[in-house]
Design a protein around this nucleic acid. Sequence first.
DNA 1: GTGAAAGCGCTAACAA
DNA 2: TTGTTAGCGCTTTCAC
Lengths: 334, 334
Amino acid sequence: MVTLKQLAKELNVSISTVSKALNNSEEIGEDTIKRVKELAELYNYKPNKVALSLKQNKTKTIGVIIPDILNHFLAKVLFGIEREAAMHGYNIITCISNESLDKEKESLQLLANGSVDGFILSLAQETQIKNEVAHFKKAIGQGLPIVMFDRVANDVLCDKVIVDDFDAVYNATKELLLERRKNIGFISTIDDLSVGKLRERGYNKAILDGGNQKPMVLRISKMEDSQLKIKTFIENNHIDGVLAADSASGVIAINIAISIGLNVPKDISVIGFSSKYISNHSVPRLTSIRQHAKDIGANAVQLLIKRLQHKNVFDNDVSTRIIKTSFIKNGSTL
Amino acid sequence: MVTLKQLAKELNVSISTVSKALNNSEEIGEDTIKRVKELAELYNYKPNKVALSLKQNKTKTIGVIIPDILNHFLAKVLFGIEREAAMHGYNIITCISNESLDKEKESLQLLANGSVDGFILSLAQETQIKNEVAHFKKAIGQGLPIVMFDRVANDVLCDKVIVDDFDAVYNATKELLLERRKNIGFISTIDDLSVGKLRERGYNKAILDGGNQKPMVLRISKMEDSQLKIKTFIENNHIDGVLAADSASGVIAINIAISIGLNVPKDISVIGFSSKYISNHSVPRLTSIRQHAKDIGANAVQLLIKRLQHKNVFDNDVSTRIIKTSFIKNGSTL
DNA sequence: GTGAAAGCGCTAACAA
DNA sequence: TTGTTAGCGCTTTCAC
């Protein structure tokens, strides 16, 4: 990489002259500016990012800690984060906590050494189960702002971007009730996540408000054979309506229902949280609650950058943005 | 963040003493080391990463440029990259080219300013179509090594990690021939990618070697309704065997086949490139060619780090690692 | 055993 | 209009 020093030497001027010239300083003569810029162009000079970071004590880099990059929703949020960050001239350093509290702590620690200006993150499953938040507070205490999205910690005072999970599921369940479904079941592989709990509560409330049936909840852990469990669940309980809390269970429920001779949506309706991409994996396509993952990511970036630019200005004034879901009617409901 | 300076002041010693003490230098007295370390511990001192990078002229950071983070395969490779990088003490800066040549160029340029020590990347679709590689050569020329994976540029001399696409599809097609399938079709949404072409060639060769039928290829673009196109394709050609080149088309083919009354695998067999996660999205599950995406990522990191550690040592000695696929028999074939 | 000083690449206050 | 200097945080050579 070419440095200012080398340019200066070749031009027989001082380093600061070159620096100022490249930054269009008023102090420098026009022809000097021209000469400098031409040589810089020729050598493809780029200011060294590391030196700039050191000097200005900011890296223009955001640390992103994602629990699971193979989760389509989280990947989509990451996409939104990257795009919005790039638009504002920020890079992102990505760490994957893999749902582990220790890896999450480690990543936070590791990046809190000057590598990033702040964090955008969603809590690891283990973190939510154990409800540990000290590491977040510590980072914030060190002057590194955090924006949490989707899976957030209520006990941490910071900006947040969340989804209207409770309402979305409440309303979706109502749809099934309107179809006069008698045995509406709820399927979740994420019952230990904050969002999973909210969704289950939305379902419960709607069912209880309905008055004619009792909640039936199927919880599936990562290790289990979800196809088998869903099949048994549907058969044993004569399920005629399904609300799926995660993005995979919905399409699986449709495919399983068909495989045991049910007609979707005549005999059984299915609604799930899912993206356009995933809802394409069943025939008929899954009627879905869309989370607008990219918007979530973009909003998180906006909040973080705002805070970085007005550091210390509104420390105690955290904001929470709720990104509303959309209900997408497809073929898996009447 | 606490700095050496602050520690030095508080301890009434010089900065260099503190630095040496923390690095267990032989020169420093035992009790001094102890005092220094205790205070550092107390203040949770962490050496400033940016300063270290500037001093040592290396960032311990890898730039990763991914064409599409919503592609499950690519996301999984990213997962493998992150994990392997973390194990070696490297961070990753992730950029998403979004299949765009310009964004790819831009990301490469942007990170080539000292932000990273090298790159791991897979070519954007547009890059492969236009076959432009100058930007890669430029980066390598600037001393930033590149490791390409999956979608690679033959014209660029650098380390590569690829998959045995041709052989995998050739052998998979043979399986369908062994089942005595008479109308084996090939479905691809990625015919303009290097890997897509290789897969199609593998299919073609197997069909022609079989001698009894002609290749039938369905190409689907991003914009089109893949369910509809696949349905027409199967019906019009009496397809009884499908080889799907991308990760979505396989499960979609199964679900479509079932929806038009075919029995899978009795009437029609389907084989696709897919992960365990995606193959779960159909009943029966998709018989799959597994690409071991995580291994691909891990290998890419290993190659890059090796090169970073032996800079200039074997500049002209690039290596290409081929990660063998596995054939996973599931319910969608006989 | 400890400290002073130089230097990584850059910016900016100040001097000329 | 241009140059000198200090300093961001750190390591390391060389003096003491």
